[in-house]
Computed example of a mutant assay.
Amino acid sequence: MDLQLPPEARALSRFLTADPDDWPRLAPRVAEAVGADTLERIVRATNARVGELGTVTDSPDGLIVSGSKGRVRAWAQVAPGGEITGLLIEGGNYTPSRRRRRRLMPLISAVCLTLVTLWNVLTMWTAADRTAWLGDIATLAAFYVIVQGWGAPAMHPRPLRRTVEAGAVAAVASAWRLPGLPTGHGTLGLAGGVALLTAAVWLVTAARLHRWKAPLSRPLLFPLEGTWYVVQGGGRALNHHARVPEQRGALDLVALGPYGTRTGSGHALTAYAAYGRPVRSPCDGVVISAADTFHDQKPGEIRYQPPSGNHVFLDTGREIVKLAHLRPGSVTVTKGDTVHRGQLLGEVGNTGNTTEPHLHIHAEREGIGLDLEFTDVPGRLHRGRRIRA
Score class of each variant (00 low, 15 high):
310 N>S: 12
240 H>E: 06
84 I>M: 01
168 A>D: 00
181 L>G: 01
88 L>T: 04
383 R>S: 00
87 L>H: 00
148 Q>T: 10
135 G>R: 03
333 V>I: 04
241 H>P: 01
225 E>T: 15
95 T>S: 05
197 L>W: 11
338 T>R: 11
246 E>W: 08
248 R>K: 09
38 T>H: 05
327 R>S: 09
122 L>M: 06
257 G>C: 14
103 R>T: 03
148 Q>H: 11
150 W>I: 08
295 H>W: 00
329 G>R: 04
68 S>T: 10
226 G>M: 14
126 T>L: 13
371 D>R: 11
124 M>F: 00
118 L>F: 01
152 A>S: 11
383 R>C: 01
180 G>Y: 00
259 Y>E: 07
206 A>R: 14
276 G>L: 09
207 A>L: 09
366 E>F: 11
252 D>S: 10
87 L>D: 00
1 M>V: 02
312 V>H: 04
161 R>E: 09
202 W>M: 15
204 V>H: 03
124 M>L: 03
83 E>P: 02
33 A>N: 05
359 L>H: 01
297 Q>A: 02
101 R>H: 08
367 G>M: 04
183 T>V: 12
162 R>D: 07
302 I>S: 09
342 G>K: 13
291 A>P: 08
297 Q>T: 10
144 Y>P: 05
255 A>F: 00
8 E>H: 07
96 P>I: 07
280 R>E: 13
146 I>P: 00
113 L>N: 08
117 T>H: 02
114 T>I: 14
314 L>R: 07
274 A>F: 06
82 G>C: 13
280 R>G: 14
284 D>L: 06
348 V>R: 06
142 A>W: 02
169 V>H: 08
347 E>D: 13
335 K>L: 02
305 Q>H: 12
96 P>G: 06
388 R>T: 15
184 G>F: 02
188 L>H: 03
117 T>M: 04
233 G>C: 06
318 R>A: 13
235 G>S: 14
185 H>I: 09
155 M>I: 11
35 G>E: 05
118 L>A: 01
260 G>N: 03
246 E>S: 12
196 L>H: 10
277 R>I: 12
215 P>Q: 10
348 V>T: 12
194 V>P: 07
283 C>A: 10
122 L>H: 06
346 G>R: 03
24 P>H: 07
88 L>E: 07
31 A>N: 01
301 E>P: 03
286 V>K: 11
278 P>I: 12
176 W>M: 09
154 A>Y: 04
270 T>K: 09
179 P>R: 02
102 R>E: 07
151 G>R: 13
145 V>G: 04
344 L>K: 06
386 R>Q: 10
363 A>H: 03
290 A>N: 01
225 E>S: 15
74 A>T: 00
150 W>F: 11
342 G>S: 14
191 A>W: 14
222 F>K: 05
139 T>G: 07
